[in-house]
Nucleic acid binder design. Structure first.
Lengths: 231, 231
DNA sequence: CGCCATCAATACGCTGCCGTATGGATGTTG
DNA sequence: CAACATCCATACGGCAGCGTATTGATGGCG
């Protein structure tokens, strides 16, 4: 009786299944939660399975990090690559950052484990990539190198801080209509449109505030076979 | 020769010494680093000592949390209690938030361990307290309840995000002269002062003691000496 | 001095996780 | 069917940390 928790039949696990489970574990219990035997129990198998796919726990962590970095790297531009207007692009980035609570938790958990050199390296790369991308968006807004540096850092700090506040003081984090206002305030404040940028009014807000905890978060379909077993 | 690492002679440990060491461990290695035997080694003793002061590891964690919460609670108003001008007060708060890197790391580590219900509870209280205090500062600026809510959350998210960025992408975080500019930009942006934002010109009359006299943070001034020894 | 409290060392058993060894079950292929 | 590959179960040894029990050293105090 394999006792398969929420895994609609699949008599064989792949290495990526393990990596996926590891990411799940990180998100909900930190890096320390990536333990072979507990994970095996959660997947309804024993470690005999694990050590067939991986040489060690460290190898699993490495695989999970790789998976995570790939997804983060792709997700940075996901859904904004076709937006020409830099202003709208940044807005979209913000919108997404505030909608994926789960991805936020995962990032925070990874960042918290930066003491591990293996993890720290990837976290630095991911953070740097995000900052670089934002930087370019602000450059496209018309800011010079230096100003773009300041503003992009500012903006990034704010939305990473939002995830933190959302987690650490959920009662105090604006919800519903209040969040819409909060969101607009941030947009209005964090995207300069003075000097070289045409004025813009917040009248046309296409699809309204997206927020509201999409259950389905990111979970892209990875290029290597194995279409998601996720919902 | 007890082999006492960096503890200028003191042949006897107190419970608070252990709690202090625990906080140190959390800051540099996360909550998991609060382990009895490693801590004992670091303190140059054996666990025989520990279990005289504490009943269990959990008790140590509890003590450390208590110590931390007390300090955080005091530190919120430390150095700003005599500043009358709310604008300068917020500036000072920001300044301090960006200067104490070590305290920032400790907070992030604690927040990362919020899965532990014991920790999560304290983290929520600390975060809420900070937000509440900031909220009042913004109210004192002349903002109404709702606006103060938005701005204080915004500001808090930003400076907690700064700590995160500073840790996760140290190369990208402004330093030196660049930081001064960055800091000024944040101040200018996050503290509405008439320019660009309403509510600041509405100094209708003195006092401003409107209703809403809810239990304020300022009322706490706990009587525990022992000033922190952070750098 | 003798008594007791304080603080710490040592030794022990227990648990949880890591990694290995080995064999079993199923499927595929010649 | 035989041979092999794939995936997993079981059993084992090892280690690190938790908690307990017991003894030892030191210092104040009658």
């Amino acid at each position: 009786m394999p006792l398969n928790p929420s895994r609609p039949d699949k008599q064989s696990l792949s290495a990526e299944d393990w990596a996926e489970a590891a990411l799940e574990a990180v998100a909900s219990g930190g890096l320390e939660a990536v333990a072979v035997e507990p994970l095996a129990r959660a997947l309804g198998v024993t470690k005999g399975s694990f050590y067939w796919h991986f040489a060690s726990r460290e190898a699993l962590v490495r695989a999970a990090l790789e998976l995570w970095e790939r997804r983060e790297t792709v997700d940075i531009i996901r859904g904004v690559e076709e937006i020409a207007d830099p202003y709208e692009k940044i807005v979209k980035l913000f919108k997404r950052a505030n909608s994926s609570y789960k991805a936020g938790r995962l990032y925070l958990a990874m960042a918290a484990a930066s003491d591990d050199p293996q993890v720290g390296e990837v976290v630095r790369r991911v953070s740097t990539l995000r900052l670089t991308y934002l930087h370019e968006c602000y450059r496209a807004l018309g800011l010079d190198e230096h100003e773009a540096q300041l503003w992009s850092t500012f903006a990034y700090a704010t939305f990473i801080g939002n995830q933190q506040v959302h987690r650490d003081a959920p009662d105090r984090f604006p919800e519903g209509a209040s969040f819409s206002e909060y969101f607009k305030l941030m947009i209005r404040t964090l995207i300069p449109r003075g000097d070289g940028v045409k004025a813009r009014d917040d009248a046309k807000d296409g699809d309204g505030a997206v927020r509201e905890e999409h259950p389905s978060v990111v979970s892209l379909r990875s290029p290597l076979g194995k279409t998601g077993s996720d919902s």
